[in-house]
Write a protein that binds this DNA or RNA. Structure first.
Lengths: 162, 162
DNA sequence: CCGGGAATATTGCAGAGTCTATAGTTGCTC
DNA sequence: GAGCAACTATAGACTCTGCAATATTCCCGG
């Protein structure tokens, strides 16, 4: 048992966790400079990448891995701040769309360059291109295994439609 | 701006986030089978690895990246459940130690093998040894850059004393 | 047509975390 | 020694999240 406490596997996973925590906190700080939380940025990104800049509440929940009630509330907040608006779905009156407003797109455009720069500075830019390619390939392998809806042999690198 | 939405850097960081989320949720599920939350497991691990199986509240907070009030509360819960107990520090009456009880060590011993197995199954076991070594080296590079208290040239793989 | 089961969003409630204020303790400086 | 700043743990107020319950809507088999 004592020896398990220093098992190399724990070191390995600890490394991943530290990297994640470090990057996440830097990202969060930059989002906050623009008045956004991490999930709010995530919501903006997902919607902006979707056709018409809109998504059904349920689909949004699936993409940002939040419960549907969580989505109801984050959309509440963002609607209050004018970044989003709700729109009734004409074909199904149960569903509601969340749509990015002009102000929301502007906020995203204002935040995104700094975010990309942070990724550059603290993640991809830390490694030479070949090492980075190896890293991404390894991560892709693990992602495909661990991700609930990974389609095994596929080469896709986007997961929007998951 | 539109092209930024599909910047390869976003894909790269998304990969990392997905891997982290997938692993974390599997770990959490296994912890829950043993009646622990993720932070509770983390607390048990950190304490068990420390001399005398104890740590000052502040130091514990630093290690598991939680606020000191957060630590107060998680220790409250675990003390209530008999996994920990508080002990006054003889040399400094402001400080309090959190000490793992026998029950706490037993709970950890019961949980740890399954946790190691999960790391094996979904993380390190997904890659051949050489690829894994590359991955860990790359992660170490990034960790050393991103981690607030990384000592640049060091080769250490444990961060207990951070 | 219509009645029941599935899907969708919302709300009440409880749990867990942060931030701020507070009280007790320590140690340094004059 | 007395005063004062720094440190330590905790308590209160607030935020965010998930789960369970609810109301509405859709769809399908009779």
């Amino acid at each position: 048992m004592i020896e398990d406490l220093h098992d190399p596997r724990l070191t390995a996973i600890g490394l991943l966790m530290e990297v994640h925590a470090g990057l996440s906190s830097r990202f969060a700080a930059q989002f906050e400079e623009h008045g956004l939380s991490t999930v709010e940025f995530e919501v903006l990104m997902r919607l902006a990448r979707s056709p018409e800049h809109q998504l059904r509440m349920t689909d949004l929940a699936a993409q940002i891995s939040l419960s549907t009630s969580g989505v109801t509330r984050v959309v509440d907040r963002m609607e209050r701040d004018g970044l989003l608006r709700r729109q009734a779905c004409p074909s199904d009156r149960r569903s509601a769309y969340a749509v990015v407003t002009e102000a929301g797109m502007a906020r995203l455009a204002e935040t995104l360059p700094g975010h990309l720069q942070l990724i550059q500075d603290w993640f991809v830019g830390q490694l030479d291109p070949e090492t980075l390619e190896h890293l991404l390939r390894a991560l892709r392998t693990i992602r495909d295994a661990v991700h609930p809806c990974a389609t095994a042999g596929s080469d896709r690198t986007t997961t929007d439609d998951c």
